[in-house]
Simulated assay, not measured.
Amino acid sequence: MASPGDLYEVIAPLLGVSHATVRAHDLALVRAGLRTTGGRGRSAAKMTSRDAASLTIVSMASDSLSDTTSTLDSFAALPTVKRWELVGKNSPIEALADNHTFLDAFAAILDAARDNQIDLAEHPKDAIGLRYYFGKQPIDIQITLHRPDCWAIVRFREPGTSEKEHIETRGYSTGKFPPQSINLKRSFTIDDRTIFALACRLDDRELKTQQELRDEMKKARIRVGSDARRSS
């Protein structure tokens, strides 16, 4: 199980924010009673998938450190919008209740990746993945948060296709919109890299760089070739 510091190490570089900023958001969630807590040392808190999803949301979309809890409040409880639904086979959010929230969906995706219910298409399970499978079909995943409207979209689609060519899209919104005087629209998107990095940390799996993976594959091919020569 991951400690808070383990998640800081994943979230900060992938979102391009400082370690101190992620830690400040996390402490704000602790003070508000919005994440798992524990003692010190061996009894320190072990982060759940909901904790990881919550910390990622606020680190993505908060305007300032004073907005941590309000940002989570705005996004976590967003209900699913059925009219945006196109269900994919074996989707990690397919089994959720009809009234599930965006935080439920985000946590379910992390659980599926952590528990190997989602198989990486091109990399070992302990790697930062680029895509995964629904069965034998390679799929890309994106999670996007929109401000100031405060709505979210989870997309699953085939690699290399446009946003409209999706296998499944789930929207999460209250249907309420900001004053029309606000003209600036912003969106924040993460994909498979962040999902699988978080999942590996939650499961205490080692994260590896793409170069490390290539080196391992090269060594494995050499071993296979040597074994084949010895047996011939």
Score class of each variant (00 low, 15 high):
Y133R: 12
K164S: 12
I182N: 03
L96S: 06
R23K: 14
A20R: 15
R23N: 15
D73I: 12
S66R: 11
A53V: 09
P4D: 03
T174D: 08
D73M: 14
A12W: 02
A108N: 09
A28V: 03
E94W: 02
I11H: 01
T209S: 13
I118M: 12
R170K: 03
D115P: 02
W84C: 12
L110W: 05
Q180Y: 06
Y172A: 04
L213M: 14
T36W: 07
L27K: 05
L29A: 08
A52G: 10
V154H: 01
I182K: 06
T169P: 00
D119T: 15
P124D: 14
G160D: 06
A76L: 06
E85N: 10
K89L: 08
Y172P: 04
P124T: 06
T189G: 02
H19S: 13
E206C: 09
T36H: 09
V10K: 00
E165C: 02
R131S: 11
D104M: 12
G160S: 10
L14A: 04
A95N: 08
R155L: 15
G41H: 13
Q142R: 13
I195V: 14
N90W: 07
L202C: 09
F102T: 11
A95G: 06
A97S: 14
F196V: 05
Q211S: 10
C150A: 15
E158K: 09
S91M: 11
C200H: 04
F196L: 00
E94F: 04
H25R: 13
Q180V: 02
M47K: 10
A53E: 09
L34I: 01
L110S: 00
T189M: 07
L202E: 08
S231D: 14
K46E: 12
I57Q: 06
D192G: 11
I128G: 02
V58Y: 12
I11P: 13
F102M: 14
D104S: 07
F156T: 00
D203M: 10
L14W: 02
F188P: 06
K176A: 11
F177G: 05
N183Y: 08
K136A: 11
E212C: 00
D51I: 11
V22F: 09
A95E: 08
S91V: 14
I11K: 03
R214Y: 04
V154E: 01
L29F: 03
T37C: 02
F196G: 01
I93S: 15
T194D: 00
R131V: 02
R23T: 12
L86P: 01
S173V: 04
I222Y: 02
A20F: 13
E168K: 00
W151G: 00
A127Q: 01
K89Q: 12
R229D: 05
Y172H: 10
P92I: 08
P92V: 09
D227T: 08
H25W: 08
L7Q: 08
F156P: 09
K185Q: 13
I93Q: 05
S181K: 14
G39W: 04
D191P: 03
T36Y: 07
D149L: 15
H146D: 07
A44G: 05
K219T: 03
V81H: 04
G41P: 07
Q180C: 01
K125C: 06
D119M: 11
L78R: 12
L15M: 11
L78H: 12
F75Q: 14
G33V: 07
L72H: 15
W84K: 10
L202F: 08
A45D: 04
D63H: 05
S62K: 01
T69G: 06
